[in-house]
Simulated scan of single mutants.
Amino acid sequence: MSRLSRSLLLALTTTALTVTAPALAKHHESAEPAPVSELVAAVDIPYEEFTLDNGLKVLVHTDRKAPIVAVSIWYGVGSAHEPEGKTGYAHLFEHIMFNGSENAPGDYFEPLRQIGATDLNGTTWLDRTNYFQTVPTSALDVALFLESDRMGYLLGAVTQEKLDNQIGVVSNEKRQGDNQPYGLV
């Protein structure tokens, strides 16, 4: 973009802001904020809820706009559950669960990518660790198998090499986060 074009764009933008700002301010003064309770009540996402024999709670929301399924598994374990003075265990657990299980060895991402999964990852927070992926509807059984297998058959697949590798990865991620502005806050 030439210097003249940039100057013209800046002048037009400044003029537009000067003209519209008083009108927006006048409108803003007369607008009343909506009560939060009304906003929450307006959100209605229908879902089914049931508990499996093994105690797992299942929530299902059906939306047939696209032939995909979002799978999200939440564990009620996070960094708030770590021993006092120790940190990183919940995050390490999250990473270890991506390294395969006894019946699905190897990188957890690879079989999901092969079936067309998108938006797949996991996160850890104070009170939970979750894993998620979006898969074609026809691949739901594979995604559920992989999630189920790492719930029940993880320990036999954990090796010292995998553990050491993920300790290094998690430690590096922590260093990177701590070194960000407000990272230690």
Rank of each mutant, 00 (worst) to 15 (best):
S2R: 14
R3H: 10
R3A: 15
L4T: 13
S7G: 13
S7H: 04
L8N: 03
L10P: 02
L10I: 14
L10F: 14
T18L: 15
V19Q: 07
T20S: 10
A21R: 12
A23G: 09
A23V: 15
K26S: 14
H28C: 09
H28N: 10
E29N: 07
S30N: 06
A31P: 01
A31L: 14
E32H: 13
E38M: 09
E38V: 09
V40E: 01
V40W: 00
V40D: 00
V43Y: 00
P46T: 06
Y47A: 08
F50H: 09
T51W: 02
D53Q: 05
G55K: 03
G55T: 06
K57D: 07
V60F: 03
T62P: 00
D63K: 08
A66P: 00
A70Y: 02
A70N: 10
S72E: 14
S72A: 14
I73K: 01
W74K: 04
Y75E: 07
G76A: 15
G78F: 08
S79V: 08
S79A: 13
A80M: 12
A80C: 11
E82I: 07
P83L: 08
G88Q: 13
G88E: 12
L92Y: 05
E94M: 14
I96T: 08
M97F: 12
F98W: 13
G106K: 07
D107L: 09
F109H: 06
P111D: 12
L112F: 07
Q114C: 11
Q114W: 10
I115R: 00
G116I: 06
G116W: 02
T118G: 09
T123M: 13
D127R: 09
R128T: 04
T129L: 11
T129G: 12
T129F: 07
V135C: 03
P136N: 09
A139I: 07
A143Q: 02
R150S: 08
R150H: 05
Y153E: 05
L154R: 04
G156H: 01
T159Y: 06
L163C: 03
L163Q: 02
N165A: 10
Q166S: 09
V170Y: 02
S171N: 05
K174L: 15
Q176M: 12
P181V: 12
V185L: 12
